[in-house]
Structure formats: structure tokens, C-alpha cells
Amino acid sequence: MNAVEIHDHARKLYGSHGPKALAEAAEMVRRYAQTGDKKLADDWRRIESALRELRGPGLS
């Protein structure tokens, strides 16, 4: 996924899952890492990072 797709996906995920979106992204990273799909795990790590940016400073 390119950067625009990553941020678009993060916004949609946050819109549908709210504060639980970060946990959902982390679960997807874990799932794809376990199955050995490095590319999808990396994409979900980037989505996870974009979600952290969307949430802003002061939240963990």
C-alpha cells in the first residue's frame, strides 16, 4: 500500500472502530506475522502507526 492508502485505511478504521482501532490494527499485525505474510504485516504496522498519528500526542 502506498502512503495515501495507508492513511485512508487508518481513517476509515478509526471511523468504524473508534478508540478500539489501534487494538484491531495490532491484532492484524499479529495475525499476518504469525501466518508469515510479511508484506501484509508491514502494511498493518504502517496503519497502526498512522492511527497513532491520528490520535495525536498525549494518548497511548
Rank of each mutant, 00 (worst) to 15 (best):
A21M: 08
E24L: 02
G18K: 10
K20R: 11
A33R: 08
N2P: 03
G36E: 10
Y32A: 00
L22V: 11
L13Y: 12
R11C: 00
Q34E: 08
S60Y: 06
E53R: 15
L51E: 04
S16P: 07
E53F: 12
A21F: 00
S60I: 10
A26M: 04
I47V: 15
M1L: 08
K20P: 07
D43G: 08
K39D: 10
K38T: 13
R31H: 05
H9D: 05
H7S: 15
R45C: 14
D42Y: 10
E53P: 00
S16T: 10
E5M: 09
R55A: 09
L40D: 12
A41C: 13
R30Y: 14
Q34L: 03
G15N: 02
L13I: 14
G36L: 01
P57S: 07
L51K: 03
L54C: 09
V29Q: 06
V4D: 09
A23L: 10
M1A: 11
H9A: 14
D37T: 06
A23P: 08
H9K: 08
M1K: 09
T35H: 06
N2Y: 04
R46H: 03
A25L: 00
I6L: 12
P57Q: 05
G36T: 09
E24S: 13
G58Q: 00
Y14A: 14
N2M: 01
A25Y: 02
R52P: 07
S60G: 11
R11Q: 09
M1R: 13
G56I: 04
G36N: 06
G58W: 00
M28N: 09
K12N: 12
G18E: 07
A3M: 03
G36Q: 01
A50L: 03
A33V: 06
E27F: 14
L54P: 00
T35N: 05
E48S: 10
I47K: 02
A10P: 00
L40F: 11
E24H: 12
W44A: 05
R55K: 15
A21K: 02
A25E: 03
Y32I: 12
V4T: 05
H17A: 15
S60K: 11
D8R: 04
E48I: 11
M28A: 01
A10R: 03
G36R: 06
A33L: 07
G58M: 05
L59F: 02
D42A: 15
G18W: 00
A23C: 08
A33I: 00
R30Q: 15
